[in-house]
Design a protein around this nucleic acid. Sequence first.
DNA 1: TCGCTATTTGCAATCGATTGCGTTTCGACT
DNA 2: AGTCGAAACGCAATCGATTGCAAATAGCGA
Lengths: 342, 342
Amino acid sequence: MKKQTPTLRDIARETGVHVSTVSRALNPVTGTSITDDVVKRIKEAADRLGYRPNRLAVGLRTNRTMTVGLMIPDITNTIFPPILRGVESVLEPLGYAVIIVNTDSMAAREHQLVDVLRERGVDGIIHAAVLRDDPKIIEVVRGGTPVVTVNRRIEGEGIPSVVNDDALGVRLVLGHLYDEGHRRIAHVAGPANLSTGQFRRKAFKSAATEMGLKLPAKAIQQAKRFDEAEGRRCTEALLDSWNPTAILCANDRLALGALEVLEERGIECPGEISVTGFNDMPFLDRIRPGLTTVRIEQFGVGQESARLLVRMMTEPETTAPSETILPVRLIKRGSVAPPPAE
Amino acid sequence: MKKQTPTLRDIARETGVHVSTVSRALNPVTGTSITDDVVKRIKEAADRLGYRPNRLAVGLRTNRTMTVGLMIPDITNTIFPPILRGVESVLEPLGYAVIIVNTDSMAAREHQLVDVLRERGVDGIIHAAVLRDDPKIIEVVRGGTPVVTVNRRIEGEGIPSVVNDDALGVRLVLGHLYDEGHRRIAHVAGPANLSTGQFRRKAFKSAATEMGLKLPAKAIQQAKRFDEAEGRRCTEALLDSWNPTAILCANDRLALGALEVLEERGIECPGEISVTGFNDMPFLDRIRPGLTTVRIEQFGVGQESARLLVRMMTEPETTAPSETILPVRLIKRGSVAPPPAE
DNA sequence: TCGCTATTTGCAATCGATTGCGTTTCGACT
DNA sequence: AGTCGAAACGCAATCGATTGCAAATAGCGA
C-alpha cells in the first residue's frame, strides 16, 4: 500500500544528499560534475528503490514530453499498422511514446485531434493523414512544432515529407500493362483532396501520354474516397461509357471494388479486363485473381519519418530534407494478362 | 513567435483576478462558487486567448493524466485495429488519450513496456496481450492501477476481463461440421501460454466428447504461436499421422496455414477436407475457398473494455464485473462441405 | 447601525524534476 | 602559510495547475 513510486526526494533522503545532486547524478551529461563515488551510491539507491523518473514532472520543467503524435486516417486500413510499427521501431528505443489518433479523413476531426495532441505537449507530429490544404497543421508548424508528413504532402509550405515513389509506381504498372499489349487503359483515380490521389493521376496522365495512348476524358474516373464502394462506382461508370482492356486503380481498395463489379457482370479478369492496384496490402496474394499491384515500403516509410522527426526535434538548427522518396516495386500477380484479341 | 500557449496566469492578468480564481472558474465543479459575471469574463478571456490547459501540469498536480495504455501483441495483426478503434470511440470523447504498445507477445518486452506506461502515469491499462501467467501486470494491479484484460485472461487474480464467448464459438463450428456429416474432426490448438489457446482447446475437447466423437491424441496439434507457419506445421503433422475430414483451427491465421498445406498437397478443400478458423479477420470472404469462421465483436470488445476501465478509474469503490462475455456468430463460407463418401 | 454568517476571492503550498547561481571544500601554487 | 581557483554540492526558483485555508466582501437580521 505504501509502495508509492519513489521520487528524487526519496533517493536524496536515502543517500543523504540534496535532490539536485541526485538529479545531476542520474543524468549522464550533468553526472560528470559529481564525484564518482556519490554517483555510484545514488545509482545504487535508485535502482534499489526502483526509481523511474516522472515524465510529467520532467516534461513540465523541460518542456519536452518525449511523446509524439501520429495522425492517421484509420488504423483499420491495413497499410497503417506497418507504418506505426516502423515509427515505433525507432521512437521507442529512444524513449518516446506514441499517441495515435484516427482522423477518418475528416477535416473537423483532424483539427480537434491536433488540439488534443498539443494539449498533451507532444514534441512532434507525424502526419499520415494530411489533406492537401490544411491550415491547422500549418499553424502548428508555424508555432514551432516539428511535423513530418507521410505518404501525402502539403504543397508549398516546406513541411518535410516522406513519400513513396508514386510516379515510378504508376509508370511501372502502366509499362507492364503496355507490355502485355494493352492500349485502352483506364484509371480509377483517388480523391482530389489527397496528394496521393492527385499525384498518381498526374503520373498516369503524363506516362500514358508519353506512351502514346489515347486518353478520352471518360478514361479517368475520380473516386471520392479510397474505398471499395467508390471503386465499384467508378468502375461501373467506366464500363458504361468506355471499353477499356485494363483498369489501373489508384489503390488496392479501389481495385477490389473494381474486381467485384467485374465479377458481378460476368466479365473475366484477367481474361477480358486486367486490373491493378497500388500499395500491396496484405492478403492480396490470396484472393482470386491475385492482384497485381505496387508494393510500397510501409514499415520503411514509418521508420524514415520517425528518424526525420527525431532529427528535427533534437537538432532544430539543421534543416531537414524536404522530401524523402522511398522506392517501390511492381508485384505481378494474376490480375493482369494480355487483352483479348479483337 | 511570441505565441506561447497561454496559461492560467495570462488569463488572470488579463481579467485582473487571481490564477486560483481562474482555475476554479474554468472547472465546472468549482465554478459554482464564483460569481457568474466573473466566470463569464474569465471564460471569454480564455477562449479569446485560445487557452488549453496544460495536461502535464494538471497531471502532476492531480495525479491523473487522462491517458490510458493499450497493450497489444502486434497492431499489424488485423484483429487489433478494430479493438483500438472501439477503445478510442469511448475514451476519446471523455478526453483520454491512448498510448499503444506492441509486445510481440514477448514477456521481456511486455515488462519493459509496462514500465514505460507507468513512467507516463497512465490512469489505467487495457491489456490485450496478457500471458496466462504474468507477474508484472499483477504487480501493477496491486499497485492500484486499474487494469482490464481483453480477449485473454489471467487466472485467479480477479482482474476484470472482456472476452468473446469462445466456448460457444467452438461449439458452433463443431456443431456445424458435425451436422455436415464430419466425424473425424481434428483441432489445431493455439499456444498453451495464452488463455484463448487453452480455452478453445478445452471447449473443443468437451464439445467433441459430448457429441461422441472419437478423439485420438494425434487429433489435436498444438501451435506455438498464432501464425500461418505454425498452422502449416500442425496441419502437416496432422495429415501425416491421421486422416481427418475436417480441421477446426483455433484462429484464422492457423487456418490459412492449413489451407496452404492442403493446396500444396493437392488435397481439395472443402471437397476432401473442410477447414474452419476463428476471429473472422478481414478479407476471409475474398480468398478461395472463403473461410468458415467465428466472428467476434472486435470493436465491441474494445468499447466494452474501455467502458469498464473508465468505470474502474472514476469509481474505484464500485466493484467491476470480473468477466464480460460478448456474443459470437458463426460465419459460413466455402471452406466447409460434407465429407467425401467413404 | 452593528455584528454575524455566507459567499467570493486571494494566498501559498504542492506535485516531481531541472538548473542557474551561490557556497563550501580542498588541493595546488607561489 | 596564504591565496586562488576549480570541483562538488546545496539552495531555491521554476514549469502550470489545483486546493485547503485565510481573508475580504456582501448580505441579512436584530
